[in-house]
Amino acid sequence: MADASIIPADEPRRLAAVRRYDILDTPPDGAFDRITALAARRFGVPISIISIVDEDRIWFKSHHGVPVEQIGRDPGLCASAILSNDPHILTDASIDPRSLANPLVAGDFGLRFYAGVPLTTDDGHNLGTLCIIDKEARPIDQSQIDDLKDLAAIVMDQIEVQLSARQAVSQAELMAKEIDHRVMNSLQFVSGLLSMQSRALDDPDAVDHLQLAANRVAAVAQVHRHFYAEAADHASCIAFLRRLCADLESILGRKIQVSGDEGNIPTTSVQPVGLLVNELVTNAAKHGQGVIEVRYEIEGNQHALIVSDEGRDLPKDFDPAAASRSLGMRVVTSLTRQLGGELTSGHRPDGGTCFKVSFQAQP
Results as ranks from 00 to 15, higher is better:
Cys131Ile: 00
Ala40Phe: 09
Cys78Glu: 05
Ala152Ser: 04
Lys149Arg: 15
Glu55Gln: 12
Ile159Asp: 03
Ile95Val: 15
Leu127Asp: 06
Leu127Glu: 00
Pro87His: 04
Leu77Phe: 13
Ala168Trp: 10
Lys149Met: 15
Val155Cys: 10
His125Thr: 09
Arg112Trp: 00
Ser62Leu: 04
Ile52Arg: 04
Asp86Lys: 09
Trp59Thr: 04
Asp92Lys: 06
Ala79Gln: 02
Pro46Ser: 04
His88Trp: 15
Ala81Tyr: 01
Glu69Phe: 12
Phe60His: 05
Glu160Lys: 09
Leu151Thr: 00
Arg41Cys: 10
Asn85Lys: 13
Leu104Lys: 06
Asn102Pro: 01
Ile50Tyr: 04
Ala101Gln: 12
Ile159Cys: 06
His63Cys: 13
Asn102Phe: 05
Gly107Tyr: 06
Ala115Phe: 06
Pro139His: 11
Asp134Ser: 03
Ile82Val: 11
Thr120Met: 12
Asp123Glu: 13
Tyr114Lys: 03
Val45Pro: 01
Asp123Asn: 12
Ser164Val: 11
Leu77Trp: 07
Asp86Gly: 05
Pro67Asn: 02
Cys78Asn: 02
Ser62Gly: 06
Phe113Thr: 02
Ala153Gln: 11
Arg42Pro: 04
Ala79Tyr: 01
Glu173Arg: 15
Asp74Asn: 14
Ile154Phe: 05
Asp108Thr: 09
Ile52Cys: 07
Ile145Ser: 04
Asp54Leu: 05
Leu104Asn: 08
Gly72Met: 10
Gln171Ile: 13
Asp54Arg: 05
Gln171Arg: 14
Ala39Val: 00
Ser143Arg: 12
Glu69Leu: 12
Ile133Trp: 03
Asp150His: 13
Val53Cys: 10
Lys135Asn: 14
Ile132Met: 07
Ala153His: 11
Ser51Trp: 00
Pro118Trp: 06
Lys149Phe: 08
Ser80Ile: 15
Gly116Lys: 04
Ile95Asp: 03
Ser164Pro: 00
Glu160His: 11
Leu127Pro: 04
Ser51Ile: 09
Thr120Phe: 07
Glu55Tyr: 09
Phe109Asn: 02
Ser143Gly: 12
Pro139Ser: 14
Thr129Pro: 01
Gly110Trp: 10
Ile50Ala: 03
Pro67Ala: 03
Asn126Thr: 03
Leu119Gly: 00
Asp157Glu: 01
Asp150Cys: 13
Asp56Asn: 15
Ala115Gln: 02
Gln70Ser: 13
Ala101Asp: 15
Gln167Leu: 15
Asp123His: 04
Glu160Gly: 02
Phe109Gly: 06
His63Ala: 15
Arg98Trp: 11
Cys131Gly: 00
Gln162His: 13
Thr91Pro: 05
Asp122Gln: 14
Ser48Leu: 06
Thr91Asn: 08
Ile47Asn: 04
Gln171Val: 14
Asp92Phe: 02
Ala115Ile: 03
Arg42Ala: 15
Ile154Ala: 07
Pro75Val: 07
Leu151Trp: 01
Pro118Glu: 02
Glu173His: 14
Gln162Leu: 13
Glu160Val: 12
Ser170Asp: 14
Asp92Glu: 08
Asp108Cys: 01
Asn102Val: 00
Ala168Leu: 13
Ser164Glu: 09
Ala93Trp: 04
Ser80Ala: 14
Leu148Ser: 00
Leu119Thr: 00
Asp56Trp: 11
Ile133Gly: 01
Val53Trp: 03
Phe60Ser: 02
Ile50Ser: 05
Ser48Tyr: 09
Cys78Thr: 03
Asp122Asn: 15
Asp147Asn: 09
Val117Ser: 07
Leu174Thr: 10
Leu77Pro: 06
Gln144Val: 07
Ile133Ser: 01
Trp59Arg: 05
Ile159Arg: 03
